[in-house]
Amino acid sequence: MRASHKRFVMSAVLPIALLGSMAAQCGPDNSDPSAATTTPAPAGTPVPTATAAATGTAGPATSAAPTGKPGPAKALSSDDLLKALLTKADVPGTTKSDSGPAGGDSKTVADKAACQPVFDLMDATNAATKPAAAVQASFKTGSNVGVMVQLYQFGAGQADKAMSSAAAALGSCSSIPSTVPGNDNEKLVVSTSKLSYPTLGDATLAFKLSYTGQTTAEYSYVFVRSGDAVINLSNVATASVTQPDQALVKKQFDKVKAAQ
């Protein structure tokens, strides 16, 4: 597979033999769903706090802010995104890391156009609608495993469209035959499965991809949208990839949110 995520980790951080660093898209598995926090309220929208109940009377529960609407946030530059990236110190077990601008690799093209939004989200710098700024970092965390992060700043409304289009495509694209024209027309078959994940930010999407081609690998992705910015954090492994660690995703989300 030659999606830019995988290529970046293998070429910029590790040789192909150390495919494990591709796991950079996700951290250690966290089986405690309570690690995720409640979706923050949009600016100007008060979130009611829990009220103590009178004896024998149940008090109202705390209400979470609605999700799915772009939050008020400034557009982040490449420098802003680079400063917001997780560092080696943030990712437990990292033995090697690298970071820099995202993009520049060959585009993966789905044989069925209806499935292309999945690739366009995970490889946004090669999509028809590209982000205005994009950076990435990769972390080798073990033998044949790693974590990768990409941060995108889209134009107004484009991040919401990219994520919603990918979510819709996943519903009918469980197997995606595809081609990489820039890599001698390499043929791939990509199996997909949508995953559940605690909601964070304005929208959250999680799914797993398994690639079969010149090389094989598994990715487990979590995408979080904050306004027009998208956080793409994933684990990659040659087999049996784990889901991204919720605490690590939350830490990256908090850093982007603070930059906005």
Rank of each mutant, 00 (worst) to 15 (best):
V190L: 13
Q214M: 12
S165C: 07
K187Q: 12
A156L: 04
P198G: 10
T216I: 07
S193L: 10
S165Y: 03
A162F: 02
Y197K: 09
S193M: 10
L195E: 13
V190Q: 08
I176C: 00
E186W: 04
A217L: 12
L188S: 02
S164P: 01
S196H: 05
Q214P: 12
S174K: 15
F207Q: 09
V189I: 14
V190K: 09
A156F: 03
G157E: 00
G171Y: 02
A156S: 14
G155Q: 10
G157N: 10
S175I: 00
L188E: 11
K161V: 12
T179L: 10
K208P: 05
N185A: 11
T212Y: 11
T215D: 14
A206F: 05
C173V: 00
G155T: 08
S178M: 05
S174R: 13
S164E: 08
G157P: 06
V180I: 12
S193D: 12
L195N: 13
S175V: 11
L195H: 08
A166I: 06
V189G: 08
T192M: 09
G201N: 10
L170W: 06
A203F: 02
L205C: 07
S165T: 13
Q158I: 07
T212Q: 15
V180K: 00
G182Q: 01
T192R: 08
L209C: 04
A217Q: 08
L195D: 14
Q214V: 13
P198D: 11
N185I: 01
D202I: 06
S174Q: 14
S175L: 05
Y197E: 07
A162V: 07
G201H: 11
A169C: 02
A166H: 06
K208H: 13
S178A: 15
V180R: 04
S178V: 01
A167T: 12
L195Q: 13
K194L: 08
G155S: 11
A169E: 01
G155R: 01
K187E: 05
G201K: 09
C173L: 06
S191I: 08
S172H: 07
D202H: 07
T216K: 15
P198T: 06
T216C: 05
T215L: 14
Q214W: 00
S175P: 07
A166N: 06
A168C: 00
K208Q: 14
L205H: 06
L209F: 05
M163N: 00
T192C: 12
T199L: 11
F207C: 09
